[in-house]
Design a protein around this nucleic acid. Structure first.
Lengths: 205, 205
DNA sequence: TAATAAATGTGAAATTTGTAACAATAAAAT
DNA sequence: ATTTTATTGTTACAAATTTCACATTTATTA
């Protein structure tokens, strides 16, 4: 069977469309989106087609319609509450980030082991991880961002899962070993940096 | 033709191996690495095989040998100098990050448009972007991290390329339109978060 | 209104990626 | 020394992904 559409691509279309809409465009063509996302125009059409999203021949796609359809696919009706665990370098960046809303998410709390970090400096409260269960229950949180140091990532993740977390965006450079029902999405910034350098090196030759 | 090995995977093997080595292991089996990286053992063996890396049947792979071979593939002999452009949330996290060395990189300077950010607070100097050429020449920098806001990303990237940058790790959620010789690697944290939520949603059903 | 041009939509082909099965080998056990 | 077991290495296969070619439709122009 062909064609399990990659969510990453659809999400990148959505992002591009939001940009285009902000610029006032009403119509989008597959080749427009191709320029914006780097995905080939045919593939974009095929993705849409497979998701039941139709355009008009020669007329392109209606931007609002596309965004609506993508929202049907991705838009959780309810805004999702998320928490952040670890206020090191990356964690401190993410607690200050203000774009969660745009993705229909809401950061409701952060956690850190260091009491000194548990100040009111930020726009959300910072607790000890012991309070995770409480917060998760109160705000119906099942997804968390994990931004603790490598050495404590596994243990922390385990604790999080024990207290209601079912999805983790993991910035620690380790494969978390967790029960099968837990979903993990890894972001490894240094690996991405090395990839870039590697490919630059190749080009030189 | 089959089998262009994904650099991402090889880099994840390398990371796992560094961890295992730190734990004192001398030998690694494909299934060990599989547990550490989440990649299937067969594929790991195939990847190694395709890169000319050989183990001993029933004896597994020698950790130091593996790391050496991976270093031959990825290790730039010279340490590579990199710069950071933009000291917002993410940029501030990355200027404080201390793991560049481990990947044989060296952050030599950062740049921000806001003079208030150009303090000596950090372990590397912060300049106006006008000084990029100068720094790039002096330190032979061709790779940069771009962590400016979305609206200025394209313009900034363009300027960077005009001043010697050939590789960009881009945190802004836009596809940069740059000359063909420039390599860009995108990291879009919110897309990754949405992917996670989407897949969690699917599971619920 | 006819002709032309510019878009979508899609089945088939090509490519890429991953898995399965199993041969080959070396270590360990008997 | 022989047998068993665990591991690599490889070939053939399967699945997934992407591109190609082109039919189809719709807008525009002459």
């Amino acid at each position: 069977m062909t064609g399990i559409v990659q969510t990453k691509r659809l999400l990148s279309y959505r992002m591009a469309l939001l940009r285009l809409k902000k610029m006032g465009l009403k119509k989008a063509y597959s080749h427009t989106l191709s320029e914006e996302t780097g995905v080939s125009a045919v593939l974009i059409r095929k993705d849409f087609s497979q998701c039941g999203i139709r355009g008009k021949r020669r007329g392109g796609y209606d931007v609002d319609y596309l965004l609506d359809e993508l929202k049907k696919l991705f838009g959780r009706e309810k805004e999702q509450n998320v928490v952040l665990v670890g206020l090191g370098n990356i964690g401190s960046a993410l607690i200050k980030y203000e774009g969660y809303r745009q993705s229909n998410m809401n950061l409701v709390a952060a956690f850190d082991i260091d009491p000194a970090k548990r100040t009111r400096r930020y726009s959300v409260p910072v607790y000890s991880l012991e309070n995770l269960r409480e917060v998760a229950d109160a705000f119906d949180v099942s997804v968390a961002i994990l931004a603790v140091p490598e050495f404590s990532a596994q243990e922390t993740a385990h604790y999080m899962v024990e207290n209601g977390i079912r999805g983790i965006l993991n910035f620690a450079p380790v494969l978390l070993k967790l029960p099968g029902h837990v979903l993990v999405n890894n972001i490894n910034i240094m690996v991405e940096m090395e990839r870039l350098m590697y490919h630059i090196g190749i080009r030189e030759k």
